[in-house]
Design a protein around this nucleic acid. Structure first.
Length: 453
RNA sequence: GUGGUUGUAGCUCAGUUGGUUAGAGCGCCGGAUUGUGGUUCCGGAGGUCGCCGGUUCGAGACCGGUCUUCCACCCCA
């Protein structure tokens, strides 16, 4: 046991069956993206640390996997930094590359770098792994795939609506029941404005989020602990207690945020999105949720999050609008909005609910039994016709015992087995056996193809 | 990053207050059955008890460290 090789914490191997399942998810997501006019791009696994650092907050910087410089990197570090044992300072001298932490920042970099070749609005999708030095847990890995769709260079709320349609489309295709939570950074800013505590938005949303768990009194207590004034807490009450339908929430917000221009703008945006959605055939529930404060550092408008209804796991999709993401790389006034599907969590959800359509995981459909060299050659010729017809088929490579070959078919869940011995060869046919029913019949290759199809 | 949890055969797990040669089921391999699988019966292989160190006459069991698993917090997909 101990001598066995292992893989790093938080990473996984995927077997053929697991790959079939994962590919079903990727293929489904990809086909939806294409259907809405998004084009694929890929970026390298590693980026310059200068591209990555400082984009995800100070916590995020700690979660970046850094790549050691090549060569005798320590010899170039100055002695003072080395004796100080300051990790951050040392890191900048021994590492200049890191593994990507998400797909959004590399995409922003891509847009800036290729701005002259890009036609805006630019709709792209990107399905690649990302790495985070997080502590692993259920549904939390150190290497996992994100499936991002973003559109940059358009301020239209139509994009937000389209993204929700995509979410609806993907999860319907995958047969997962979800709820979309929608918020708007401008509303949060507005709330902070009217209560005069602009820098405490995060504390406020975190506290409000606990309402169901700990009750109103405890929430207010927590707000006091965060040094919010009584006056501010007083003004916050209608927002904490906000409930009802989306329309009711919007109505209340309009009153509460009457004095905040930004806040009203946010409410207006949310209202429009709901208005557009109501005219479309989107059956997934979309709920206005003010406690959604994800990615506050760079979202400026809509904030999305998708949760699975039947499995308790973190959010399986998230995203939002960022007005100025490319700004950090020197390209101003390019607004973008996008979402990221967490393929690995979707995979976990699909597994616990066993939602894979049976046909999505079949590999070989037809196995030819090997009776010896002469018979195998006959089978090989038949295989060409079968494969030309688009049927996944193979010949057992060795003239092993029948039992062993049949067993192989069982293990691989191959649905048909073909036998071609002397009699069949003389007749120019094969014996086709249905492995599910056990029935078998003497047929021509053409007939066999029809049966299998 | 903080607190907890887990590790024994390929898999799921037993293993008495520390005591001879560490077990079961499933799976795997072979045979009964030389062109017919899933069932049944018979036989077989497979373990430095996560790793390193300590206590002890003696450790799978106790202690320390370390790695790993899973969980809560944080954060997130």
């Amino acid at each position: 046991m101990a001598q066995k090789p292992a893989i790093p914490k938080g990473t996984r191997d995927f077997s053929p069956i697991e790959m079939a399942k994962r590919n079903f998810i990727f293929d489904t997501i990809k086909s939806v993206f294409l259907k809405y006019g998004y084009q694929p791009i890929e970026t390298p696994a590693m980026e310059n640390l200068s591209t990555l650092m400082g984009k995800y907050g100070e916590e995020g910087d700690k979660l970046l996997f850094k790549i050691l410089n090549s060569g005798d990197f320590l010899s170039k570090v100055n002695d003072q930094v080395l004796t100080e044992k300051n990790s951050i300072k040392t890191t900048t001298q021994i590492s200049e590359k890191g593994l990507r932490y998400d797909l959004t920042v590399p995409f922003a970099r891509f847009v800036v770098q290729h701005q002259n070749d890009i036609t805006f609005p630019f709709k792209r999708y990107q399905i690649q792994p990302v790495w985070r030095a997080d502590r692993p847990q259920k549904g939390r890995y150190r290497e996992f795939y994100q499936c991002d769709v973003d559109v940059v260079g358009s301020d239209s709320l139509m994009n937000e609506v389209e993204l929700i349609q995509i979410v609806d489309d993907v999860y319907k295709s995958l047969n997962i029941n979800v709820v979309v939570k929608l918020n708007n950074r401008k509303i949060l800013t507005g709330i902070a404005e009217i209560i005069g505590e602009a820098d405490k938005i995060v504390d406020i949303t975190v506290a409000i989020d606990k309402l169901d768990k700990i009750g109103l009194d405890k929430v207010n207590e927590e707000l006091r602990q965060k040094n919010l004034s009584e006056n501010a807490i007083e003004k916050l009450q209608p927002i904490i207690k906000l409930e009802g339908t989306n329309a009711e929430k919007i109505h209340t917000l309009k009153t509460v945020l009457a004095q905040s221009e930004t806040g009203l703008k946010g409410v207006d945006e949310v209202e429009k999105v709901f208005e557009y959605l109501s005219t479309l055939d989107v059956t997934t529930e979309v709920e206005l949720d003010l406690t959604l404060a994800r990615g506050l550092n760079y979202y400026t408008g809509a904030i999305f999050e998708v949760k699975a209804l039947d499995v308790q796991i973190g959010s399986i999709t998230g995203g939002g609008r960022y007005d100025d993401l490319t700004g950090i790389f020197g390209l101003k006034d390019v607004s973008g909005v996008g979402i990221s599907f967490g393929a690995d969590r979707i995979y976990d959800v699909m597994n616990t609910l066993d939602l894979y359509p049976k046909e999505s995981i079949v590999s070989t459909q037809l196995l030819f039994i090997n009776f010896g060299e002469k018979e195998a050659l006959y089978s090989l010729k038949s295989l060409q016709k079968v494969r030309a017809a688009g049927i996944k088929a193979e010949l057992y490579p060795d003239a092993a015992k029948m039992k062993k070959q049949m067993n192989y078919a069982n293990k691989k869940e191959i649905s048909f087995v073909a036998m071609a011995g002397e009699d069949e060869i003389n007749a120019g046919k094969i014996t086709l056996k249905n492995m599910t029913t056990g029935d078998q019949q003497l047929v021509t290759i053409e007939e066999a193809i029809e049966i299998i199809k």
